[in-house]
């Protein structure tokens, strides 16, 4: 194994730091002592074959469930096991790979929800401001002409845009994007890539999770590859592509 399992990362090594994360389900170890630092302002590719533990890692960070052991630092602060909604308030937003729009309301209203303050008594929505902000975000993610549609009228790429819009509405510093390119056509991949790199240029830090490098090569600054819950390679996308360990991991299975 050539991977450097850089143990004992410092809380300030990056905007988001995972230090020795382990997640077990019963006897199964899904994530095995994983340490990662996400630097501010970068686009990090988080790559691994299906079943490598990407989503589990993701869920440990976003607060869906706590890790079995290890520490998550966000902005230098220990946030291990923090609830999903608190992570969002701290500035870490996510998209759902399987797309989870609220089917009962329009695209714009989906985005409006993410703009709603986490307060029990709020009439903000009755003023027009939220609506305008939501409309602006819809424009930003390329749904400007479809914001009155219901989610089930949107094509696949549209749903991804909606996921992004909803995440952006929470005004994140760091955005975790889960498998954005699966099922997209070439031009769509390019268009979403452009959107993501524009967002980075505006100051957003991004982690893009995917099971292969398709669409990522030109987008990401750095890639981390995991297999069986442990890191097997880290580096610039071109290096990763040539890395023998990585190639072996993908042999006979997915295309890298």
């Amino acid at each position: 194994m050539s991977a450097e399992t850089a143990s004992a990362l410092d809380p300030d090594d990056g905007l988001l730091v995972l230090d020795g994360i382990v997640k077990q389900f019963g006897g199964l170890t899904a994530v095995d002592d994983l340490s990662i630092a996400v630097e501010e302002g970068e686009i990090l590719g988080f790559i691994g074959p299906n079943g490598a533990g990407k989503s589990t890692t993701f869920n440990c960070v976003t607060g869906r469930y706590p890790p079995t052991s290890g520490t998550v630092y966000y902005d230098g602060e220990d946030v291990t096991g923090t609830d999903a909604h608190r992570m969002v308030t701290k500035g870490l937003a996510r998209t759902f790979q399987e797309f989870r729009p609220l089917e009962d309301r329009s695209v714009r209203e989906n985005v409006e929800l993410a703009l709603t303050p986490d307060k029990l008594f709020s009439l903000q929505g009755l003023r027009g401001e939220t609506r305008q902000r939501a409309a602006a975000i819809c424009e930003r993610v390329g749904l400007g002409d479809r914001m009155e549609m219901l989610p089930d009228e949107l094509p696949h790429a549209g749903l991804l845009r909606l996921e992004l819009g909803r995440a952006l509405a929470t005004e994140p510093e760091l955005l975790l994007v889960d498998e954005p390119f699966a099922g997209l056509s070439g031009p769509e991949v390019e268009s979403i890539s452009n959107l993501l790199s524009d967002l980075r240029d505006e100051g957003l830090t991004l982690v893009v999770v995917d099971h292969n490098m398709r669409g990522l090569l030109s987008l990401i600054d750095r890639a981390i590859v995991i297999q069986f819950g442990a890191m097997i390679a880290e580096g610039a996308p071109e290096e990763i592509k040539q890395d023998p360990t990585v190639q072996e991991a993908y042999l006979g299975g997915d295309e890298l």
């Binding site: 976003t62 607060g63 869906r64 609830d83 999903a84 909604h85 608190r86 969002v88 308030t89 937003a93 996510r94 759902f96 989870r100 729009p101 609220l102 089917e103 009962d104 309301r105 209203e109 409006e112 929800l113 993410a114 709603t116 303050p117 986490d118 307060k119 029990l120 008594f121 709020s122 009439l123 903000q124 929505g125 009755l126 909803r166 995440a167 509405a169 929470t170």
Partner: peptide, 30 residues
Amino acid sequence: ITRSDAGSVFTAIREDEDAVAAAGLNPAKF
């Protein structure tokens, strides 16, 4: 109350609690 913001959070909880949490809202509180 239901036509205020809380109402739209309520119905969102009915639709998908995880999505509500991902929007930075605390479903438990609502």
